[in-house]
């Protein structure tokens, strides 16, 4: 029982929290892919931007990071729309891979701006350690993990409502299905694109703030997550937002659980190699099922 509690408390539940962060990021990558047909390499740096926006509010106004979260989400959303307008819009009719290179440039610009404005030191939203909160029996959960998981659940529910019920959400699915037919149906596809960036950028900012809460804040916090995010998007079937949620959770849990000492006293996968787990999953999917578990699009 104690061993199980240790496994759940120290490996599984933190894995769920990490998985939520991945899910929030991967949903954006998948949505952007579904609508704009390109892999957005600057997504990790949009996450970093959101995390630092929240940090500014925490550091200068003394806000709680959770209060700063919605502001950061709004900031990430608006910044993404602006980036699209300035950088990506001229490429609407270019081959997707050209836009990928452009997103490389965006990645460089965002990161260097962050380094210029906020420096390169490792930062924290708050100092000191909070006691984990007991759940049932020996099971405990860190406060930050509870909040990350609950807020992510709420966001996922809101996203589901948006995509399945709202007019714009349905238009988004329609455009993902067939952009020409969406145009023929009278849908303003540029408006759909704007909404895609609002949602993708907002979710990325939330993921960035959570990544900062979960560990620390530094200029490559988002870049370091890019590999697991892509792995999650491919696992769930690229272009499928729901798949990305499941893929994110699966990769997050797999990464944490892989560091459990399954065989000897040592971690099965050294913690420094967590990202290798994501890469392994990505490679397996590319070999056996590039469409993802939910049959996404093959590029």
């Amino acid at each position: 029982m104690e061993a199980l509690a240790e496994f759940v408390n120290l490996y599984f539940l933190p894995g769920v929290a990490v998985g939520c962060i991945y899910a929030l990021g991967a949903v954006g990558i998948s949505l952007i892919f579904a609508i704009l047909r390109f892999a957005h390499f600057a997504h990790g740096d949009v996450m970093t931007l959101g995390a630092y926006l929240a940090y500014s509010l925490v550091a200068s106004l003394g806000w709680s990071v959770y209060l700063a979260l919605p502001v950061a989400v709004l900031g990430g959303a608006l910044a993404s729309v602006a980036i699209d307008r300035v950088v990506y819009q001229p490429f609407r009719r270019s081959p997707g891979i050209i836009v990928v290179i452009a997103s490389f440039g965006v990645m460089l610009v965002l990161r260097s701006l962050i380094q210029l404005f906020w420096g390169v030191d490792v930062l924290n939203y708050e100092t000191g350690i909070r006691k984990p909160i007991p759940l049932i029996g020996d099971f405990r959960l860190a406060q930050k993990h509870i909040i990350i998981i609950l807020v992510s659940l709420a966001i996922a529910a809101a996203l589901h409502w948006f995509l399945s019920r709202s007019r714009m959400g349905k238009a988004m699915r329609a455009m993902s299905d067939d952009a020409d037919l969406a145009r023929i149906s009278g849908i303003d596809t540029e408006k759909v694109v704007r909404w895609t960036w609002l949602i993708g950028g907002g979710l990325a900012a939330a993921a960035g703030v959570f990544a900062g809460i979960n560990s620390k804040l530094h200029p490559s916090v988002g870049w370091d997550l890019l590999l697991p995010l892509f792995a999650a998007a491919i696992l769930g079937g690229i272009g499928k937002p729901y798949g990305a949620i499941v893929g994110g959770l699966a990769i997050g849990i797999a990464q944490e659980v892989a560091t459990y000492p399954w065989i000897s006293d040592l971690p099965l996968v050294p913690p420094a190699y967590k990202n290798a787990v994501a890469f392994f999953v990505m490679v397996c999917m590319l070999i056996w099922r590039p469409t993802g578990i939910f049959k996404g699009r093959v590029l």
Binding site: R167, K170, A171, A174, D177, D178, A182, S185, I187
Partner: peptide
């Protein structure tokens, strides 16, 4: 060709027609 939204329900297809 490609004249319906394949992953959307019939009702949603019609709703998209009425988007405007």
């Amino acid at each position: 060709e490609r004249n319906v939204f394949r992953t959307m329900t019939v009702r949603e297809n019609l709703e998209m027609g009425a988007y405007l």
